Simulated assay, not measured.
Amino acid sequence: MTQAVFPAGAYCRAVERIIAAGQRMDRFGWVPATAGNISIRLPDGNLAITRSGGHKGLLGPDGVICVDPQGRPLAQGDRPSAETLLHCQVYAHDPAAGAVLHGHSVASTVLSMAGGDALVLEGYEVQKVFAGQDTHAARVTVPIFDNDQDIARLARVVAPHLDGMRAGYIIRGHGVYVWGADMDMALARLEGLEFLLACELEKRKLP
């Protein structure tokens, strides 16, 4: 297998943004151990994505690899995350998506294990970070899907719900997936969602 042809500058910028995003997610405690993954769509349609097994807060350039739109590595010996297919699914579904983030926060893990098929967020000013939300009075539903080590099967479960996901989704006991037109938007949505999930977790502690 040979490396795809794409503008070197675009790839270098993508690597820099992925490294910076990993450091930011690590500061908030959203990518413990080797958890999480981060990707950017390149101009040629291929993806720059974190290599499997690396700590996202300690990424270097060799911690990012290229895969094609189906998630196949473009350089022999490269090993993408097992969940690369979920990134590919978002990009295939949404032509405007430019970056996808997956984190494992305490709030998303605990709340998703409390039961139910979704979390409903309402009354928060911060929820306006999500597409189509222009008032705190709106309701934002975040679907929750059962965890599955068979990622292709999990992707098939997620697929019918993608059109309605304004705030991404949660894998039960696992973490969140969010995306945006570029890395800045994806990070804003991740931070917004994680803030809201942390608020919900705190609310449940109130008498």
Results as ranks from 00 to 15, higher is better:
Met1Trp: 00
Thr2Arg: 15
Gln3Cys: 00
Gln3Phe: 07
Phe6Ala: 09
Phe6Asp: 04
Phe6Cys: 10
Arg13Pro: 01
Ala14Thr: 13
Asp26Tyr: 15
Trp30Arg: 07
Val31Arg: 02
Pro32Cys: 06
Pro32Leu: 01
Ala33Lys: 10
Thr34Trp: 06
Ala35Glu: 03
Gly36Val: 10
Arg41Ile: 11
Leu42Thr: 13
Ala48Trp: 12
Ile49Thr: 08
Thr50Ser: 08
Arg51Glu: 11
Ser52His: 06
Gly54Pro: 07
His55Val: 01
Gly57Gln: 14
Leu58Thr: 04
Pro61Tyr: 15
Pro61Gly: 10
Asp62Lys: 09
Asp62Trp: 04
Gly63Ser: 11
Val64Gly: 00
Val64Pro: 01
Val64Lys: 02
Ile65Tyr: 03
Val67His: 09
Gly71Leu: 12
Arg72Gln: 10
Leu74Tyr: 12
Gly77Ala: 01
Asp78Lys: 04
Arg79Thr: 14
Ser81His: 02
Thr84Val: 14
Leu86Gly: 08
His87Ala: 01
Gln89Arg: 02
Ala92Phe: 05
Ala92Gly: 15
Ala99Val: 00
Val100Ile: 06
His102Lys: 05
Gly103Glu: 10
Ser105Trp: 13
Ser108Trp: 05
Thr109Ser: 04
Leu111Phe: 05
Leu111Gly: 05
Val120Cys: 14
Leu121Ala: 07
Glu122Pro: 04
Gly123His: 07
Tyr124Gly: 00
Tyr124Leu: 10
Gln127Asn: 03
Val129His: 02
Phe130Lys: 01
Phe130Asn: 04
Gly132His: 06
Ala137Gln: 14
Arg139Trp: 12
Val140Leu: 06
Val140Asp: 00
Asp148Lys: 08
Asp150Ile: 12
Ala152Tyr: 13
Leu154Trp: 00
Leu154Ala: 02
Ala155Cys: 14
Arg156His: 11
Val157Asp: 10
Val158Gly: 04
His161Pro: 03
Ala167Ser: 14
Ala167Gln: 05
Gly168Val: 05
Gly168Asn: 03
Gly168Ile: 01
Val176Thr: 15
Tyr177Asn: 12
Tyr177Val: 13
Trp179Phe: 11
Gly180Val: 03
Gly180Trp: 00
Ala181Phe: 06
Asp184Gly: 08
Leu187Trp: 10
Arg189Ala: 06
Phe195Tyr: 13
Leu196Tyr: 03
Leu197Thr: 00
Leu201Gly: 01
Glu202Pro: 00
Arg204Trp: 01
